[in-house]
Design a protein around this nucleic acid. Structure first.
Lengths: 230, 230
DNA sequence: GTCTATAGCTTGATAGAC
DNA sequence: GTCTATCAAGCTATAGAC
């Protein structure tokens, strides 16, 4: 039975495997990486993947889980702080979106290469028909629902459907940012850089908040009837 | 030398290989699919992949190219029609974005399973650090630059940088839509469906246009100076 | 054009030495 | 805990029959 915490040496090996797997999976996806490549990159051994995780697939899950746990804790605190600091009217849509995205952009920028790879991996998995729905639901459903609840308060007249579609667009914009493919660099002739997450942090909440507000103005038939009766 | 057009039978086989590869690559990515699986799914033979395309990688490129050619032609016509039909003030931001996205959403919805798979594949490739920048630049740079030129006319005071970042957010929202992962379905408890591209078509141009307009209001230092001097 | 056969590697997993 | 050795299976690519 693998020892996942008590032994110093074993735990360090386990973390090295996770680090190498994180980086390689982020670059080439689950099928694009071999257990041998992960072992080599971590100065370890293929057999230790089975020893610590059971197999390649379980290692992949462990990579996704490791930072999701820390991240969800941080993001809940960040959202609660945002609500606490807001006036009686509650936080603005911009504030809520910034509370949602800033912990991610901040860690991808300043958290070191592990966080950078982790978010790039999330960017790939999110857009994968094979893993997208299940993985994202497993690791991020609670925080997304809390975030949507905050937005329902900031946009009380918005039909729920519009909030879900708005979140979908936000999610797409955010995870493409994580991928840092360099596409915006070449498209803009170097005026913008994929790695410049400060630029994204300055723009994404504004861009997305404007979109949320726009869709919030759409009306369901029931909402129109109610407004007309007022 | 493979015969890519003159023979009826050979061309049909080639198309069957492309169809099967398109579907499988869209589901599991380049490395998640074997030449054998493609041959089996197309009732064909692994050796024919080499015969018609040279190898697995070249087949992948051929899949990407096949519909990109048709698509670029259609999209240029659509954008020109949009500009022609607009009044002297030119098309609105909403009109331009709809001209950009509608040909894609329409074919994914009503073009048959091949188009659906193709866009799902684009959704995966776009977010891949390995392929994203190069593939998208190769197949879509001309149409994206035309689209951005139209937006520069509609938003003449917007700093170019803001348009590039706005396009980046649009791209992310669009390609996550193509992936149709089912994430929005479970998140919304069934209120929204990933496959409902009509719902996206009704919302995406509004959402994104609001974002473009918001970022267009941002000012560079040079722009502020110029405005102050007026 | 199509397919069989196969070369030559690489894969994920594991048994067992230390 | 770590690593060597190895297995059975699967991989891409290709030579050559038809």
């Amino acid at each position: 039975m693998p020892d996942t915490g008590s032994s110093r040496r074993g735990e360090r090996t386990r973390q090295r495997l996770l680090d190498a797997a994180e980086r390689l999976f982020a670059e080439k996806g689950f099928y694009g990486v071999t257990v041998r490549a992960i072992a080599k990159a971590s100065d370890s051994d293929p057999a230790l993947v089975a020893y610590y995780f059971g197999g390649k697939r379980e290692l992949f899950d462990a990579v996704l889980l490791r930072r999701a746990e820390k991240l969800n804790k941080i993001r809940i605190e960040r959202l609660e702080a945002c609500e606490r600091e807001a006036g009686p009217a509650g936080p603005s849509v911009e504030d809520i979106i910034e509370a949602f995205t800033e912990p991610l952009l901040d860690r991808s920028s300043h958290g070191g290469p592990g966080w950078k790879s982790y978010f790039a991996l999330i960017g790939q998995v999110t857009n994968s028909p094979e893993w997208g729905a299940a993985v994202m639901a497993k690791y991020f459903d609670p925080i997304v629902h809390r975030f949507l609840d905050a937005l329902k308060k900031a946009l009380p007249d918005a039909p729920e459907e519009e909030l879900y579609w708005s979140y979908h667009f936000l999610s797409g914009a955010l995870v493409l940012t994580f991928a840092e493919t360099g596409r915006v660099d070449s498209l803009s002739g170097g005026q913008c850089r994929s790695t410049d997450l400060v630029a994204v942090h300055e723009r994404l909440p504004q861009f997305i908040a404007a979109g949320f507000k726009r869709l919030a103005e759409r009306r369901t038939i029931e909402t129109e009837d109610r407004d007309a009766a007022e």
